[in-house]
Amino acid sequence: MPLRSLLSWTVLVPVLAIIALAITWTHKELGIIPVLIVAILLAGAVLTAVHHAEIVAHRVGEPFGSLVLAVAVTVIEVGLIVTLMSSGGPEAATLARDTIFAAVMITTNGIVGLSLLVGALRYGLTPFNAEGTGAELATVTTLAALSLVFPTFTTTLPGPVYSAPQMAFAAVASLVLYGMFVFTQTIRHRDFFVPVTDEGTVAPEEDHARPPSGGRTAASLVLLVVALVAVVGLAKVESPAIEAAVEAVGFPQSFVGVVIALLVLLPETIAAVRAAARQRVQISLNLAYGSAIASIGLTIPVIVLASIWLNGPLHLGLGGTQLVLFILTVIVSVLTVVPGRATRLQGGVHLAILAAFIFLAVNP
């Protein structure tokens, strides 16, 4: 790699962010200046993650590019959840549920709504492949129901918890569904997940720039992982400051999980909006629903395994308000996906549901 490339901000920022993470990881409390520095590096890591994800996506093409970013973010997010659960107290019992549900609401309403709104404001209508997007939505709905809805109604154990056999079934089912989704998206029916034109035909590949070389792609893949580790790690480092801020304004402590989820999903959000601005809304939907599928399909099996040595119960079942928000999200998402194209109204409706989720997280 040329010296100029090594000194570019897209290389230096992830390295500096990782150094800052290594220095601050064991510190429970930071002063105002370190907190500000970490916040700046966190924002920079988000931007560099998007940059390198787009380089990798340009090289491998869709839908592989969307899958790379979704899986990378989710794998590191799983590590963060397990770390917080192992070091947390009684409140850690609901951490996995709250984090997964926040990720589902942010992806299926926030990223989808923002992408549809941006695309519709710029082009009037936002066409996408209803077959592929419908399959993604069906997978998200089934995974969420198996992992987050059923524990509320099972009777083997009291409370919103699964018994050991029930957790094992949920873990295996999640892995199988995720594997089937990846096979369908990348091999068997790849054409269902590529951008389409207004007439419903496959859109031509973007050719305004040559694909990056193999060496540059490999370097970007490494830097993408480094940047994502920095994003998730620095988000955890910032969590005490976020908790203090949340407590200062009188918000529930559970809202901290929403803030962390928003930070972790920033790279995917920015990448999705930029794709929508280029009239590639299908890529945006792949990022949104693919991230939701990965968040459940990869997190639940790991959490189930981790629960063997983690102390305390694992509350997975959603509460009443969360169940209503989930059902509303599924109904609206089906109505959005079926036509195969959307207007700014659909984008606004999804963003309204996200706003309701955030508001009710503040005022439960």
Score class of each variant (00 low, 15 high):
157 L>H: 04
326 F>Y: 12
196 V>K: 02
106 I>K: 01
297 G>M: 12
247 E>V: 09
202 V>Q: 11
318 L>D: 04
179 G>D: 12
296 I>L: 14
47 L>R: 14
75 V>P: 10
119 G>L: 01
219 A>Y: 03
173 A>I: 11
351 L>T: 12
235 A>Y: 00
298 L>I: 10
12 L>H: 03
23 I>P: 07
69 L>R: 05
249 V>I: 08
343 T>V: 07
171 A>Y: 02
167 M>C: 08
312 G>E: 10
156 T>I: 09
333 S>K: 05
193 F>Y: 15
280 R>V: 02
180 M>Q: 08
44 G>S: 04
92 A>W: 06
287 L>P: 05
357 F>M: 12
46 V>M: 12
205 E>H: 12
304 V>A: 15
122 R>T: 06
178 Y>A: 11
240 P>H: 00
88 G>Y: 02
285 L>T: 07
238 E>M: 15
69 L>N: 08
228 L>Y: 04
96 A>C: 07
331 I>V: 14
198 D>R: 14
189 H>T: 04
58 H>L: 13
298 L>E: 13
358 I>L: 15
210 R>K: 15
129 N>H: 12
337 V>G: 11
138 A>D: 03
54 E>N: 13
300 I>E: 10
262 L>C: 00
179 G>I: 08
250 G>N: 09
337 V>Y: 08
108 T>R: 03
74 T>S: 15
358 I>F: 14
210 R>D: 13
193 F>W: 04
280 R>L: 04
144 A>Y: 06
1 M>C: 14
321 T>A: 15
318 L>Q: 05
284 S>T: 00
231 V>P: 02
238 E>L: 15
13 V>A: 13
3 L>P: 07
94 T>W: 13
243 E>N: 02
210 R>A: 15
56 V>T: 01
351 L>C: 09
342 A>N: 14
262 L>R: 00
108 T>K: 08
20 A>T: 04
79 G>W: 12
353 I>N: 07
192 F>K: 12
138 A>N: 13
276 A>R: 03
